[in-house]
Amino acid sequence: MTALPPGDALLLAVILFSTGLAGILIRRNLLFMLMSIDIMLNAAALVFIAAGAKWHDATGQVMFLMILALAATETAAGLAIILRLHARGRPSLDADTGNLLRG
């Protein structure tokens, strides 16, 4: 089985992160923004895994677990907000319309 050098994994992480960032900036739909955030979180997780592999340390994967918990929490809260907005008559899920408090 071939193995991936951790340095190359960092390159992949950078590209993934930029893609996720572009997604957040480009898309107006809240659902897509959430997915983009997940992509960015995965890029960060990849960096941790790569660092753990480079120094042969299990702490990298512990941090991956932490990111996993964070992503789960973030997705749950984000999706709850989306459902709530939808129920209150904003079916377009446009991130740009939520800019006023009590909107």
Binding site: A3, G7, L10
Partner: peptide
Amino acid sequence: LLFGLRATPHTGTPAPI
């Protein structure tokens, strides 16, 4: 970021954890 990473060595094979 890629420019900043250019100095990292791209070698070495990781041992599985």
